[in-house]
């Protein structure tokens, strides 16, 4: 397989992969809001309520590496 062919396949499958990821992400965004696990729109308040002593919108004691759902 020469490099041009490889380039073609890589481009094609990678694009498909990223498109799938994008749509999956959209579904994920709306579904997790519907289920009440998350509220993305609330994150917009991070900019509005940004005093150093104001309560973080999404504070947690969970370490970043821990892959676990947060309870609000």
């Amino acid at each position: 397989m020469d490099i041009r062919e490889l380039q073609g396949y890589a481009s094609f499958f990678m694009t498909i992969f990223l498109v799938v990821m994008l749509y999956w992400y959209i579904i994920y965004l709306y579904r997790s809001e519907k289920k009440g696990e998350k509220d993305y729109e609330k994150l917009g308040n991070i900019a509005l309520d940004d005093e150093i002593d104001s309560k973080p919108i999404n504070s947690s004691s969970v370490t970043p590496s821990e892959n676990k759902e947060q309870k609000k």
């Binding site: 992400y25 997790s32 759902e69």
Partner: peptide, 9 residues
């Protein structure tokens, strides 16, 4: 997975 990405800069 997305949740994890959002939490891991």
């Amino acid at each position: 997975m997305f949740h994890w990405l959002e939490k891991n800069p």
